[in-house]
């Protein structure tokens, strides 16, 4: 079961985690990741941000990442929730949850999904601070994190 939601609304991580369980008690391990808005980025104070995306492509891009994770590891379920619109420091932005039989698979797949989401999913952050607004620049280390998975063929 793969699911993707791009939404304005906040989310409840405990509800999302329960939704990863299919009911047949096959899941031995769920790994989840939650991303939050920080009050500072690269030394600049952040008072809020606007998250823009490319409707349609965002969902299909994330779905493609989940499918690639599913080809690489034996997952039982994988889910991504990503918020768009206006966010403030402390707000949840993104949630990734993976269930599988064993922890190694769930940890790896969760990290893989997040690494590729940061590099491929068409979202853009515009931060607001005391000096005005600025578009967040893409980071080279985010690209490096995703490219590790290309070299590393071990699950």
């Amino acid at each position: 079961m793969l699911s993707v939601s791009v939404q304005f609304e906040d989310f409840d991580t405990s509800v999302l985690q329960r939704q990863l369980l299919a009911g047949a008690c096959e899941e031995g391990a769920i790994a989840t990741f939650t991303g939050y808005v920080r009050a500072a980025n690269t030394g600049r104070e952040v008072r809020g941000m606007e998250l823009e995306h490319y409707p349609g492509m965002t969902e299909s891009s994330i779905k493609g990442i989940l499918e690639r994770a599913g080809e690489r590891w034996p997952l039982l379920a994988a889910s991504v929730v990503h918020r768009v619109g206006r966010l403030r420091p402390g707000d949840q932005i993104v949630w990734v949850g993976v269930s599988s039989a064993h922890r190694g698979t769930s940890f790896s797949a969760c990290e893989f999904i997040m690494d590729y989401l940061k590099n491929e999913a068409p979202f853009w952050k515009k931060e607001e601070g005391p000096q005005g607004t600025n578009w967040v620049e893409a980071r080279a280390d985010d690209r490096d994190r995703a490219s590790r998975w290309d070299e590393d063929t071990q699950p």
């Binding site: 998250l51 490319y54 979202f123 853009w124 578009w135 893409a138």
Partner: peptide
Amino acid sequence: VAFFPPVTGG
């Protein structure tokens, strides 16, 4: 067709 800058989600 779409034109956009490098992505910065997550």
